[in-house]
Design a protein around this nucleic acid. Sequence first.
DNA 1: TTGTAAGCGTTATCAG
DNA 2: CTGATAACGCTTACAA
Lengths: 351, 351
Amino acid sequence: MPPPRKFVSAREVAERAGVSRSAVSRAFTPGASVSEDTRRRVLEAATALGYHVNHLARGLSLKESGIVCLVGSELGTPYRASLVKAMTQAAQDAGKVAMVINTDRSDESVSAALRQALHYRADASIILSGMPDKSITRLCLENGQRIVLINRDDDQDGPLRINLRDGEAARCALTAFLRAGCRRLAFANSEAGTPSLMARERGFLAAAAAIGLPVTVERFGPSVYESGRELARRLLTARVRPDAVFCATDLIACGFLDAARHEFGLAVPEDLCVTGFDDIEQASWSSYSLTTFAQPVAEIAREAFAWLRLAPEEAARRPAAVELEARMVWRRTVRGRPPAARAAARAAVEA
Amino acid sequence: MPPPRKFVSAREVAERAGVSRSAVSRAFTPGASVSEDTRRRVLEAATALGYHVNHLARGLSLKESGIVCLVGSELGTPYRASLVKAMTQAAQDAGKVAMVINTDRSDESVSAALRQALHYRADASIILSGMPDKSITRLCLENGQRIVLINRDDDQDGPLRINLRDGEAARCALTAFLRAGCRRLAFANSEAGTPSLMARERGFLAAAAAIGLPVTVERFGPSVYESGRELARRLLTARVRPDAVFCATDLIACGFLDAARHEFGLAVPEDLCVTGFDDIEQASWSSYSLTTFAQPVAEIAREAFAWLRLAPEEAARRPAAVELEARMVWRRTVRGRPPAARAAARAAVEA
DNA sequence: TTGTAAGCGTTATCAG
DNA sequence: CTGATAACGCTTACAA
């Protein structure tokens, strides 16, 4: 059953190069002291034999496996896929390699994934969705495994928490709606109830409440396109039809937009203003031209790996949470202009 | 620099459980002979201590690491992302774990990825894009690493090759166009020149040639949405405007559709019939309702892992290539009805 | 700079 | 069923 495999090992390389095993090891270790001559001889023998350092064995001696675990659900979804791509790329750039583990919505499956990370002695785990059990998190931490939580809004410390300022984005959306003359506000959310989704909802409600405006909130299904359509059906047949809706994600917004236009014959942004969140690629497609808030995916990946690169004590000394801005991307589903464009227009008039 | 990590090892578990190290090992080995009593004692001690079998070490003794490498480029793209998702899931279902490696378009980067797979003693590598160097492929094979090539259309054997019947799909598209009354055919392709893209193009041209119809082919840029828009601009301003275009991928088709409608004011399918390829999720969104051909992603993953599950000699005995059908998905960018619907309609009339 | 030897955590073999 | 012991392939003091 176990397939017969015969990898060439350092010993064979050593023999062929006429040196000792350690010399071979050193030849492949960046800062080691080897004479240029032996290094060359070793490298020659190695390529001739097709030798590749066994990272499994190396991870055994060293205390680093070079593996970073990416765990999350709905990895086929545009936003998640872009995150996976950015993370795997960042891992490679950091000289590591990413192991990706799919989870379903259950927190149990997240714990199972973390257990897998432990099995492979991953140097770190990056969690894109769900919440691991406290106990398994502690176990990882105790074993020297670093943990990064993306948009998880957790309060335990030890892990690095990277979050977006969802509330600020919500306020921003509200301002844009107001300036567009909208007053009948709605928030279209899924029933997933993840921290960031809820933060957006709360932020929007709070901002509206601050100026005494009510918000109709509707929640339905998972965070997918179809839910957006259904949410549109519910919201747009209500007795008082909203004239501005903040969709919790772009996927929802796309579905909402399609239903609003094709099923209700509404013109956006004339009859209705809409914003999304994430800035997935499709948001920029001309059928949508969705005004939305960008997940700073590259920046998230950069922050995560910058922290991972730090020595453990150093990392422990740093604040364990970083907050990033979700920049508003103005396109064409909200009437009016972005502040910058307004400033430019004003300048033009004055000139 | 190397972070101080102290994982609990089998020895500590053994001590606590009052058994030998080998007993611990056996307790975690499915078919091993251990008394129910010791197994329970071991398991208890293990959970109490937070012990997790070290798969790095296990991979060292066994000749299997349990790692499957997924290598490909543009992993954030809808089709690729769905493939990654399906593959990582299939890996987990098969009791393995997926390591994903990003490549750019260069074949050199694919070889580098394969080298990485070698480093980690991956049991198999699944290649989603690009072509590895023959020599590195041979090296992997010699080292007992199985290789699966997805839509790569290669002729070397050793790897399992999973391909779609692109030509058949192309013929299918042509038939649909013809039945819709279209005669001015075009093929919109990217400049990527990947095997499957070219196979679709060749297939379409061949089918058209067989009945004496010319096809305008235009190629531009990478296989992305924007390229589709540009291809539309080129094709739709031509002296004789096509009335049917086969886009090499759905992404291209979406761009093409958007430009055709929003920039040229064309009605689809009335003025123009369009088909895509892949059946990405967006193809089903109502702004597109794209008639297309589905990549049988789940089936591809299933085939890949079914083959990987086979013992090496068994796998060697099997045909090393499997061809899958890209089923046509009828939506609304081609006039007319699918064969099944026509048959049903005929039956209704007769009744 | 180089080689020798010990150790990393498993599993497989072989006695008992 | 159980326990010692020898690999597995690497890194890294330690000594030369």
